[in-house]
Amino acid sequence: MSLFESTLRPVLFRVGGGDAEKAHEFTLGRLSRLGERARGLARGRYAVDAPVEAFGVRFPNAVGLAAGMDKNGVALPAWPALGFGFVEVGTVTAHAQPGNDKPRLFRLRDSEAIINRMGFNNAGAAALAARLDALGPLGVPLGVSLGKSKVTPLEEAVEDYLTSYRLLHPYADYIAVNVSSPNTPGLRTLQDKSAIATLLAALTGTTPVLVKIAPDLTEPAIAELLEVCLSHGAAGVIATNTTLARDGLAPADQPRAAEAGGLSGRPLTEKARKVVHFVHTETGGRLPIIGVGGIMTPDDATRMLDAGAALVQLYSGFIYHGPGLVRGVAKAAAAYRERAEIR
């Protein structure tokens, strides 16, 4: 057990009387106060230099922070200091919105899982653009995840995404199009062939655009979506988002199974890996994949890379295992690539 797991995690999990969202906000607040000092604070300790290139972007290592951890980019300098080779902020929407009613974030400790129904709570695309403009270069690639505002009707979704895209693409090394969150009504219908084709056709430019997909799609539905991605210039795929399934929960966590929202963490590990493998096989490797979902150990990351991912992201794994996991995953990814090159 790491020092984080034995000492810091128990303290964080008690913040706010055990309220997961209050603990999240507390942690972001502390990290945001580090400001510019964070840029070099722990870089030497945690950083792993093992460059990877994907969709025309060079990454200092293969492990990134997934969207949802720092929606508004308030703690951006801290993430590279903790060893992340890239950071994805958001999901951000054209209109600022408070998200769903609280409570909306739940830990399932025995299962190393999280259920969230946040609902894209964020300060809006204009506020994020202003923060990124003031911050300047981050030092590692920055992805920006875009979602649809809840107040925007589905028939106006393209213009809603475009509003955010126009404001934010100048600051992004890549744009992630989130059409797979289960927490915005109707959003997942935008994964349908005609809807995603229209959206991708609109988001043209020099910034790479990746599509984030749900783990709950059938293989035929994923295949249709991939066909559109290939024909409409998507630079890659992020696989996967959270799941609506409740398989693999520990007995002690079963009472939480009725909570609405997307499940992440250990129960998603194998499902996400299978989706990555299918995407890689179906496209013949033509679409680079960021693999995310249930990466709780360095071995999970290695298996995700072996399934076809070019890069990986952490969310729940970071919450449960801390910065040591970032370094462990980055080292495992570097070792995997060395072995692949030898073969």
Rank of each mutant, 00 (worst) to 15 (best):
N178D: 14
A129Q: 03
D110C: 08
A335Y: 05
A172T: 03
G56F: 10
P170K: 11
P153R: 03
E341R: 15
A330P: 10
G18I: 12
G16I: 08
G85E: 04
S149H: 00
N72V: 08
A62P: 00
P251S: 06
D49W: 04
E270Q: 13
R109N: 10
S231K: 14
T7H: 14
R166D: 07
D253P: 03
A335H: 09
V15Q: 15
D300L: 05
S149C: 00
T218Y: 11
V276A: 05
A310I: 00
I319P: 02
K274I: 02
K150Y: 07
P51V: 07
T283W: 03
H277T: 12
H24T: 10
G205P: 05
D101W: 05
A66N: 05
E21H: 09
L314G: 03
G17L: 03
G294S: 07
G308A: 07
I295L: 02
T207H: 06
L135D: 04
E159Y: 02
A252F: 08
A47V: 04
P153N: 06
A258R: 15
L135G: 01
G308V: 07
V275R: 00
T184W: 12
N116V: 13
L31C: 11
H169S: 14
T206I: 04
I196L: 15
V57A: 06
Y315A: 09
E219Q: 14
K102H: 13
T283V: 11
F84Q: 01
I115E: 06
P103Q: 14
G64V: 06
P103L: 15
M1L: 13
G293A: 04
G139L: 00
I342E: 14
D192M: 05
K331P: 00
R33E: 14
G317C: 04
V276W: 02
T198N: 13
H321T: 04
D110L: 06
V48A: 06
V11S: 13
T240L: 03
R188T: 10
R45A: 13
T91R: 02
C229V: 11
L244T: 15
G16T: 11
A334M: 13
D300Q: 08
R39F: 09
G186Y: 12
L28K: 10
A301Q: 01
D216I: 06
L190G: 02
G294M: 05
Y174V: 02
Y174M: 07
P60A: 06
T281Q: 15
I222Q: 04
R45P: 00
H95M: 12
A123T: 13
L225D: 05
T27H: 09
P153V: 05
V144H: 00
R273Q: 08
D173E: 08
E219D: 15
V151M: 09
A223F: 12
V312Q: 03
L263G: 03
E5P: 04
I295Y: 00
I289N: 00
D110Q: 14
C229A: 15
K271I: 12
E156F: 08
E53I: 02
T302M: 07
S111A: 09
F4C: 10
L138W: 04
L168E: 01
A66D: 06
I319V: 15
R30I: 14
